[in-house]
Amino acid sequence: MDLQVLRSFQAVAGGATVTDAAADAHITQPALSRALNRLESEVGAELFHRVGRVLQLTPAGRVFKEYVDAVLDSYDRGLRAVAEVVDPDAGVVSLAFLHTLGTWLVPKLVTGFGRSFPGVRFELHQSDENGLAQILLDATADLIITSKDPRHPLIAWRCLLVEPLWLAVPARHRLAQRRRVRLAEVSDDQFIVLKPGYGLRSITETLCRQAGFSPLVAFEGEEVETLRGLVAAGLGVSLIPVSRDAPETSPDLPIRYLEVTDVHGARDIGIAWLASRTLPPAPKRFMDHALRTAAEAGGTATGIT
């Protein structure tokens, strides 16, 4: 059984056309079709059925794909491990992270690690909370950096730091001249929040519930910077990670950040990996670097500069 045929099977099973998969494999489309037919003969079952112009997996094909994914993942990790034995200062770190961490934490960790291991290459992915866990389970990434413990039996998680969440209000808001506020004081305000599935959304709902109310959602976004912009425009308030320029905001800025006093306005940021999988040397070194950097910063977001 040819590994390249298995990769082509994997590609077609993932939605690629036979023509595109053949081009990626540098063979003709008829040659790949014959190879897939031979694969079905070896397996002893039909793996695809045609729906219109698209090939879809049969029940047997879905079962077979799980094992093909595992075989190819194991083979690729073996190649990486051998390459890193040959050249310990090289390697690849496949890292997925929460969108909101791509503006400050991940760049700082990657840059700091690169100073010690300039030969290591990074493959970076962004996703929401639910997508991060799946990326890890699918072995698309070695590590994920996320805002909560996935609490999955196959995933191990370590806390890196605690990131404060502040109440962002428009500059002309009735509470804008305050430094501190009880979250309950904005129970009647409209909230600007992230869409369901994002960790910050669930944290916002939990904190509001602890303060005795459910947030009145005015807008659901996908980026924290969008939330900041809409708050600045006067469209509502939002619980968000404190901006790098806050709390010492200028009077000219259209947004104010207020410390929340009646609930614990913060979220845990952690790093996770598959508990049953031995990390290759480069991802293991990066994880150690992330944990060490966070510990040296005192486990707070403001300590990592």
Rank of each mutant, 00 (worst) to 15 (best):
V110W: 00
F122V: 05
P118D: 05
R77D: 11
T100P: 08
R121Q: 14
D89T: 12
K65Q: 15
V86K: 07
V51L: 09
Y67K: 10
Q56C: 08
V110M: 02
T103M: 06
K108H: 04
V85E: 10
R121T: 09
L57Q: 12
W104F: 01
S74P: 09
D73R: 06
L124F: 07
V54F: 07
V106T: 11
H125S: 10
L101E: 05
R62E: 15
L109S: 05
T111V: 07
V86Q: 14
E84Q: 07
F97Q: 04
G61D: 10
A90W: 00
F64E: 05
P107D: 07
R62Q: 12
A81G: 13
L95R: 03
D73S: 12
A83R: 13
F97L: 01
F97I: 03
K108D: 02
S74C: 07
P118Q: 04
L105Q: 10
L124V: 13
R115S: 03
F122R: 01
L72R: 13
D73G: 15
V51E: 15
F113W: 01
L124E: 02
G52I: 06
S74Y: 09
P88S: 11
L72K: 10
L98H: 13
P88R: 03
G112N: 08
H49G: 12
A81R: 13
A90I: 01
G112M: 03
A70F: 01
W104K: 05
